[in-house]
Nucleic acid binder design. Structure first.
Lengths: 339, 339
DNA sequence: TTGAAAGCGCTACCAG
DNA sequence: CTGGTAGCGCTTTCAA
């Protein structure tokens, strides 16, 4: 930078101003000269020096459990949103695994911030409210939880509204004449799965409809496991006219089983899921499901985070985005064999 | 750091030495005092300052097309390897999308390096030999291509050996009495897909076996597309006794179709794939496939990159890792109806 | 074994 | 509108 100042016969300051795109405080002629010179010298601003001087790393961290999440459609959608939310800005992504260094996750992540490796964090932990959130929040580190509502006091989160999806789906099927409705459960130890299950039972109760325990089975958010369980389930003499799966993966597993058994969906039994995975578009038959605005979640989370790190002002604590139904071909309205 | 030097009655230098874990050049007593003091002060080294002084960002970039790859099992496996390769080191991951900023990918990535935002790059571009590789290589930027062999001169890559997998699979089926073998093709525009296809034809020719064009169809590395095409395919009166899918996703799609049609795998038709996705373990029936050492690929790539950035010595140009078969339940040996 | 000094490349702050 | 000066927190170099 000194070189180019010298070559142009101006001070480093002027050069700095021009290069920083400061719109004021520099004459046009000087600006042009400097710009030309910079190009000639093939000048590259040094991000390290800049970071150091401004006391900002320029990196925003994404913290998530690599195993399981990194390869999921959910992650890629969320990141697409994060990207969108940071479009046009000069921030960069850093990536951290909350599983490694598990012995001291809180310290690790907090350290990242204190050591100025990142200026803020997005925590993706849809599967549990990890304890590290508490520590980060307590230390006033800019961190936003994406994808899961959290019970932590003062923590900021942006998520989709799981319970609402299930309620909607229950109403949807009931409105279409279904009375006997089955449910495929997610893993017991996951908050979101419990929330979904509760919402189903509540909504059935609200409509005065009984829940037949035979029509409930576990799939653990897993396609092949659900398939295997459904293979048993479908042997029952009396089937429900519809089944709600707590997520798409399980709905897909149910379809796999139905195809193997030669049971027709939706003629014999309707199926709905939650998530709207890419695969739900092209399943056999295409799956009616709740589209979760995961991408939007990421976008909002990122905007909040940037706002927070740039202004220092902590945003509102919680946002829940609601889902919308995508009607495809796995639901039969007014089934003739409905009880 | 000054504070703690003062408090201990030593110089900043001594403190620096202690904190850097320099094994020599400092007395035990001084070391202990400094360490204690640092703990008391809750001292945090500032990574920014360190980076600046050492002229290293501490970040290694992973460049990939977010869309399509970010949510894939392939990506997560590769990253697991990268992580392994960087275990114990002080490097961090940065993440860049080769699709955004597509207008000037080369410049963008090169810029990242020149601006010192990253000290090296892993390029994951299994689907094409992007032009930006050329630019990076020409500028002697430490970049390693993971997952795909490359034709670029001087570029360094670590990849799995696709052709070898297909050759092995062909031999494997032939050795088990199969004579009429079908093939599910990947997308035409992908190098790896063409390579796999060529390998199949070559190997059949080598054994003096004809390839029936009716037994070849396209799946484009896509599960549901393959399912739909296979649904047609399986209507043929004469089927091959085995089918090789150029990847697991397509093998899975083929299984979907077989299940829907009620065609028994492997009794009627055997199926094999390439990749060994998680889903291949639990498909119906479980899939016999080639396990690609994707994780290993990542690990080696990362080790090479670190070596390169730390020593400045460019590693050997190309490594190909070979695959091993995982025998499950989708192949029938010595089918009775083989021609 | 220790310490003093210089400097990494940039920005902030205050003068002119 | 412009330029000087003073750091940012660490490492490197050299001298004691």
């Amino acid at each position: 930078m000194g070189d180019i100042a010298e070559a142009c016969g101006v001070s480093k300051m002027t050069v700095s101003r021009v290069l920083r795109n400061a719109e004021y405080g520099v004459s046009e002629s000087a600006r042009e000269r400097v710009l030309a010179c910079a190009k000639r010298f093939n000048y590259r601003p040094n991000a390290l020096a800049k970071s150091f001087a401004k006391n900002r790393s320029g990196y925003l961290g994404i913290a998530l459990p690599f195993e399981g999440l990194l390869g999921s459609a959910y992650f890629s959608r969320l990141v697409a949103g994060l990207q969108e939310g940071m479009a046009g800005s000069d921030w960069q992504f850093a990536l951290f695994d909350t599983l490694s260094d598990s012995f001291n996750k809180g310290d690790k992540l907090a350290g990242l911030y204190h050591e100025q490796r990142v200026d803020g964090l997005i925590a993706i932990a849809p599967h549990s409210n990890e304890e590290y959130i508490e520590k980060l929040t307590a230390e006033d580190i800019p961190v936003i939880i994406a994808g899961e509502p959290t019970q932590h006091q003062n923590a900021i989160s942006v998520s989709t509204d799981d319970e609402d999806s299930i309620r909607f789906l229950s109403d949807y099927l009931i409105a279409r004449g279904h009375r006997e409705i089955g449910f495929v459960e997610g893993p017991e130890n996951l908050l979101s799965a419990r929330l979904r299950s509760d919402a189903f039972h509540q909504q059935m109760a609200k409509h005065g409809l009984p829940v037949n325990p035979n029509f409930i089975f576990r799939g653990d958010y897993n396609r092949s496991k659900t398939r295997d369980n459904a293979l048993q389930f479908l042997k029952m003499k009396a089937l429900p006219s519809a089944v709600i799966a707590a997520n798409d993966l399980m709905a897909l597993g149910f379809l796999d089983a139905a195809n193997i058994c030669g049971i027709s969906v939706p003629a014999t039994c309707s199926v709905v899921g939650v998530d709207d995975l890419d695969a739900a578009k092209s399943s056999y038959p295409p799956l009616t499901t709740m589209h979760q605005p995961v991408r939007k979640t990421g976008e909002i989370a990122m905007r909040c985070l940037i706002e927070w790190t740039e202004t220092g002002k902590k945003p509102e604590p919680l946002k829940k985005l609601s889902s919308t139904i995508v009607e495809r071909a796995s639901v039969q309205a007014y089934p003739t064999h409905a009880s």
